[in-house]
């Protein structure tokens, strides 16, 4: 059907493009392309932000449809979650009052007061479509005081940390990314470990490296541990809520944590620009 010359040309183009892709993959390893990434963020950031502003009505409409479909499946889960939380609330009310009194005494509110650590509010305008890269791009960068490594939170809890910052944009590595690891502790028992992810499930974090015999049980909350050693400083200040333990798998030694922040729907986040780690 096609002459040999056409077939050869096609194969040559395919081979050339595959080879170029493989060269790019190889070149991407290491930090050699960091400056190119910053440049790409600087150039493409404003274009993406503009596109995001223009497409907001489309996004909202499509999001409404998606939310409605998702909500049907969520109703049952939320009902059982509500009942469980009500039971916990009653049990913990007394403890909370006592805790508040003690915190006032110790002045911990001031030490953990993230409001005094320089919060920069940023709008999310871009996100990766694949489960393999849990990142979002925000409209604040080094001009606003944002630095690489700064923790990112929202009203519900920890979201991630700044991976790359350019002048007016930054890419945030979410806590559900395969490259993320957060030094954490169980709030109730003080047992410490690292919160990591299982690729593909944004609602299931894993609290790893707990000590043998450490107390971990369903319903306990997990918060950032801060820097526990000067040799291994943490990006995150102590006490930021991360999530709640949903399951403790004794056989596998895995503690499953559901994040407080809904990481699939992020419109605005806050970047802690002066974290006291």
């Amino acid at each position: 059907m096609y002459d040999r010359k056409t077939v050869r040309r096609r194969r040559a183009v395919l081979g050339l493009l595959v080879a170029a892709s493989l060269i790019l993959v190889t070149a991407s390893f290491g930090d050699g392309l960091r400056s190119i990434e910053r440049g790409a963020l600087e150039v493409l950031g404003p274009i993406q932000e503009g596109a995001s502003n223009i497409l907001k009505p489309v996004r909202d409409a499509a999001g409404w449809v998606g939310d409605t479909l998702d909500a049907k499946g969520d109703v049952e889960d939320l009902r059982s979650e509500r009942d469980r939380l009500n039971r916990e609330l009653i049990a913990e009310r007394g403890a909370t009052q006592e805790n508040a009194r003690l915190r006032r005494l110790l002045g911990m509110d001031q030490r953990l007061g993230l409001d005094q650590q320089g919060l920069v509010e940023a709008r999310v305008y871009g996100r990766s479509p694949t489960a393999w890269y849990a990142t979002v791009t925000v409209n604040k960068g080094t001009k606003d005081g944002v630095r690489e490594g700064d923790p990112v939170i929202n009203g519900a809890g920890l979201v991630g940390r700044v991976r790359i910052a350019s002048g007016s944009s930054a890419q945030v590595l979410l806590i559900t990314d395969a490259d993320s690891g957060v030094p954490s502790k169980i709030n109730e028992s003080g047992a410490s470990g690292i919160v990591e992810t299982a690729v593909g499930d944004p609602n299931d974090l894993r609290l790893n490296f707990l000590g043998r015999g450490d107390d971990a049980s369903r319903g306990q909350s997990v918060v950032t541990a801060g820097s526990t050693s000067p040799r291994y400083p943490s990006f995150f200040p102590e006490g930021i809520p991360i999530g709640r333990i949903t399951e403790v798998d004794e056989d596998e030694g895995t503690v499953h944590v559901r994040p407080f922040a809904d990481l699939r729907r992020l419109d605005y986040v806050q970047i802690v620009t002066d974290p006291a780690t």
Binding site: A51, L55, R59, D70, V124, R127, P129, T137, R264, R265
Partner: peptide
């Protein structure tokens, strides 16, 4: 641009087009 700025932020049954 449409994918990154709009479609990626829409989740249907936990997945993104």
């Amino acid at each position: 641009l449409v994918q990154i700025a709009a479609v990626s932020q829409v989740s249907v049954f936990g997945a993104t087009p």
